[in-house]
Design a protein around this nucleic acid. Structure first.
Lengths: 129, 129
DNA sequence: CTTGAACCTCTAGTTACTAGAGCTTGTAGA
DNA sequence: TCTACAAGCTCTAGTAACTAGAGGTTCAAG
């Protein structure tokens, strides 16, 4: 299964120039090229790109994402170093989850406020059920 | 309770130039100034800054954060518009939570792999208990 | 008063995209 | 085969969000 950059863009919900950028900086493996010099991506590229984009949307830097990719590829440094990297990411993830749950509660509070401020016009509460 | 920019920086875990940047673009209210022209921040500033920094760390853009702040200040547009903004953010938050939980699982898998690849040197498993 | 830390503004650089110009390739239809 | 349009290419430069450093001022402690 071979994808053009446009197809990959749609699959991974990631803009074409961004994909080129990721390839240029090395976080996404270089694509092979057709005889017309067009990029040819594989399913593995697609999965990698999904990981990158989701992690970016969650606030991880590209540097952090690179670390994760290395670890997922089984490229472990010394046990202690990999351990501290994984541990650090895990702590970060759990902090983000906690913070997002707080934010969720705040947004639900806003729903209530929105309902109270414009009872006749606001469909917030019914829409959330 | 009045804070200098350095104090606020420590409280909110946010760099001084970033605080200045946020004030300049208007996402953080302007501080009053001392007779020596130094910024004087309040507890309210501190709470606002916490919201901004946490939201940034979670991958929200400053534009999105501005929207949230407006809503929290009770500045509602028409009911339909505020509803769709809140709904959109709530959906985003829930998606991020789901994605983070996936990532957490992946990291826990990495813990196992790390353990298997370097059993004698790796303290991952015991450290997580 | 002196000294060093913390503050100020301003300029410019870094990271992470994003847009557009000008060109080539691929594909569908006539 | 030709034409037209969509999708691809590289390159330059701009935007968003910080970040660093220069050169100066203010503050606080000794």
């Amino acid at each position: 299964m071979i994808y053009s950059i446009g197809q990959l863009s749609k699959l991974a919900q990631c803009k074409i120039p961004t994909i080129r950028y990721y390839e240029e900086i090395g976080i996404l493996d270089k694509a092979t090229r057709s005889t017309g010099n067009q990029r040819q991506y594989t399913q593995a590229h697609c999965e990698r790109l999904n990981l990158i984009c989701h992690s970016r949307a969650l606030g991880f830097s590209l540097k952090e994402i690179k670390q994760l990719i290395k670890l997922q590829n089984g490229q472990f440094d010394s046990g202690q170093k990999s351990h501290s990297i994984v541990q650090s990411h895990l702590t970060d993830v759990r902090n983000k989850i906690a913070k997002l749950k707080e934010l969720e509660l705040q947004l639900l509070t806003l729903v209530e406020q929105c309902h109270q401020s414009e009872t006749s016009d606001c469909l917030c509460v019914s829409a959330l059920k």
